[in-house]
Amino acid sequence: MGFFEAIRISMFQKYATFEGRARRAEYWYFYLFMIIASTALIVLAGMERDSLLALSIIFIASLAFILPSLAVTVRRLHDTDRSGWALLIGCIPVIGGILMLVWSCSRGTPGVNRFGSDPLNEV
């Protein structure tokens, strides 16, 4: 899965889909896109003279990214055979973030798990 295919799937086809599984490539390419887009918006907002307009642009972009980022993270957890509710572990300071990073980097379960078929075999 390439960068643009991952963005097409995460942002447009599965914008708010919390069911199924997401491969590591889909997950990490989505977050790379989110970092690039956020940085570009912050730079553009910094060039704006009206600070209220700049903050509004950043706020609207943040709202647009909330749902797909939650959805792709839940699908990534599903790929490692964990419930989407495991996302709440990220709320625990330090340890929660480390666990989420480890789980996000882990290889998904091969074959079918309780959340669906292996995304590698769906392509």
Rank of each mutant, 00 (worst) to 15 (best):
I58Q: 04
R23A: 14
A45S: 14
I66H: 01
L101I: 12
N113R: 04
S104L: 01
A61S: 04
R49T: 15
R23Y: 09
S56V: 09
V43M: 12
G97D: 06
E48K: 12
W103N: 04
R49N: 15
E26S: 06
Y29P: 10
Y27D: 04
A37Y: 13
L88K: 09
Y27M: 10
A25M: 15
A86V: 15
I95T: 05
D81A: 09
S51M: 13
G46L: 01
R75I: 02
L101Q: 07
C105K: 05
A71L: 01
N113F: 00
L77H: 00
F59E: 11
D50W: 10
P68C: 01
G116L: 01
I42A: 15
R107E: 15
G84T: 01
V102W: 05
R76D: 05
A54F: 01
D79R: 03
W28I: 02
L52S: 14
L87W: 10
G84N: 03
G111D: 09
I66V: 12
A22R: 02
L88P: 10
C105I: 13
L99F: 14
Y31M: 11
G116K: 00
I58Y: 02
G97W: 07
W85N: 07
C91D: 11
A64P: 00
C105Q: 11
E48R: 12
G116R: 04
G90P: 04
P93K: 06
I66L: 11
V102M: 04
I57K: 03
G111V: 08
R23P: 13
S69P: 00
I57M: 15
F30G: 11
L63H: 06
W85T: 11
